[in-house]
Design a protein around this nucleic acid. Sequence first.
DNA 1: ATGCCGCCAGAGTGGCGA
Length: 257
Amino acid sequence: MRIASYNINGIKARLPRLLEWLEETRPHVACLQEIKTQDEGFPASEFEKLGYGAIWHGQKGFNGVAILARDAQPVEVQRGLEGEPEDEHSRYLEADVHGLRVACIYLPNGNPQPGPKFDYKLRWMERLRKRAAQILAEEVPAVLAGDYNVIPRDNDVYSVRAMASDALMQPESRAAYRRILADGWTDAIGTLRPGGGVWTYWDYQAGAWQRDHGFRIDHLLLNPSAADRLSAIGVDKDHRGREKASDHAPTWVELRD
DNA sequence: ATGCCGCCAGAGTGGCGA
């Protein structure tokens, strides 16, 4: 079973590319981030035509997450994270589907740092950690998939120096990420590719794609029962190189049945 | 040092977020 995470950077602008990717790769579950649409604008019928059920948590203009499932309807468990009732960003959606608990995550970027956006990022990570701990206690196979906006290690970025002051690789961001892992989550790609060099994002600017100036910020975290079933990981890198592509590439894990 | 892109308001372009 393949579970993919894909920051699509606008579902309206990306729809042909997204449908093409679904048809070509047929993931069992696809977690989408940055759909950038209100709930009314979500093109559920387009996914239905391809045999995908969906749930979504939209927002006007930016953010927004969705979970698609092949030949199944995800059963929503939670939307949003507890801890800040005034936080209206649509960044978290959780469902049961295909015998798994799946969370779709769009973690705050946090730039510029230092500043209120960075503080929000760190608070959001602690709120996520609390929810993740509750999921661990349920002991169902679980995957936390999304755009974490965290570069976990120095070998997950094309240039440490170029990104040194970025919120994505500040020590505080990395420490918060490591705390989640230390609770019992396995970073699937980090674990199967300890040497690094796997990118999931290439900026639109500065010819980053052509120069292969990328980094790894899209992660799939597995609880122990899911990690026991991990058989492969991958990045659908060729989709990043197509016309009108997202700046992220689809990133996935394969779990044994 | 800079290079892009999607979305919004509101009808040009500029602002925001990334």
